[in-house]
């Protein structure tokens, strides 16, 4: 096949054909990616990039024009007293929800995984609130809070600065506990019965089995549940907005609500965007640290 003497080696033709064939093959796959690239680019990538630009402007959220103000928004952020309280609120809320949600979900999941009459009924009871929107959950509980809990406890939870977070935490637990119960139950079902039986023969009691077998074997579930609950609760928006709108007197204002307020109430969209970027970096660092921490604790099954 070697056509060495020719100026134009014929094998190039074969390569050319081959390249065309491979290109065509590749294109046949790329076509499938195009809808996703367009949609994802339009809804996520472009807004994200243009958001970085907006964070360096004084856009008010209404007018068509804006001025570039350099890093002003970020330097202002450092000395803004209005930002400190929401950060504190968000941190307290996020940590408490994550701790309570996971402890309760783990307890309920272990109990439901044992031999128990009516387990299917209990399971469904905990899962159903997942189908209810955060808005409706908040309004129903708000009504219960001001018309039943306030009578039982003498005080409404959501109406007082000191207890408002407890109220919102209860709403969030009711609304979201089910998904962690699902994940823990799947994790428990995945633990081989052999481990349990072996430990029973060795004479381990229920508590020893739970802490020495169930907990270490559930590490992948912990990673997912804790990371998911923490990142979701740190960006809590709908529940708080519907339950209190951030009140009373800003005591339940989370960072997500603060950004929303700066955008729509105070018409400082550029500044809101700067806060959201800092917030995002903060969330990503926490997410990565958590994942790293839990991955290092996982045992090979």
């Amino acid at each position: 096949m070697e056509q060495g003497t020719s100026v134009f080696p014929v094998r190039w033709l074969f390569y050319g054909k081959d390249i065309m064939k491979r290109l065509k093959r590749e294109l046949s796959y790329v076509v499938f990616l195009i809808p996703s690239l367009l949609l994802f680019g339009f809804c996520v990538v472009y807004p994200f990039l243009s958001g970085i630009q907006l964070a360096f402007t004084d856009w008010d959220g209404i007018s068509r024009t804006y001025n570039f103000v350099g890093a002003d928004n970020f330097t202002k952020l450092l000395s803004d007293k209005n930002v400190l309280q929401p950060i504190k609120t968000t941190a307290i809320y996020g940590l408490t929800v994550t701790a309570l949600n996971n402890v309760l979900a783990l307890f309920i999941a272990t109990t439901l995984s044992k031999k128990l009459k009516g387990a299917a009924f209990f399971k469904t009871t905990f899962f159903i609130p997942l189908a209810i929107s955060a808005v409706l959950a908040s309004f129903v509980w708000k009504y219960i809070d001001s018309n039943l809990i306030s009578i039982l406890l003498g005080n409404s939870l959501l109406g007082k600065r000191e207890t408002v977070l407890i109220g919102i935490i209860l709403i969030s637990l009711w609304n979201n506990l089910g998904s962690n119960i699902m994940i823990y139950m799947a994790g428990i079902a995945g633990i081989s019965r052999d481990y349990e039986e072996a430990s029973m023969i060795d004479g381990a009691n229920g508590r020893q089995r739970f802490f020495n077998i169930t907990v270490p074997m559930l590490m992948p579930s912990f990673t997912i549940c804790i990371t998911l609950t923490l990142t979701a609760s740190l960006r809590e928006f709908g529940t708080v907005l519907a339950a209190t709108g951030g009140g009373p007197a800003g005591s339940s204002q989370t960072v997500a609500i603060l950004i929303y307020d700066y955008m729509f109430k105070y018409s400082r969209a550029g500044y809101a965007q700067a806060i959201s970027l800092v917030f995002m970096v903060f969330l990503m660092v926490i997410g990565l640290l958590l994942t790293k921490f839990f991955r290092s604790k996982e045992v090979e099954a």
């Binding site: 907006l54 959220g61 997500a256 955008m263 809101a272 959201s276 995002m280």
Partner: peptide
């Protein structure tokens, strides 16, 4: 990504 990050630019 928290939704708040793209909230302002999406609105614009």
């Amino acid at each position: 990504l928290p939704f708040q990050v793209i909230m302002v630019p999406v609105y614009r």
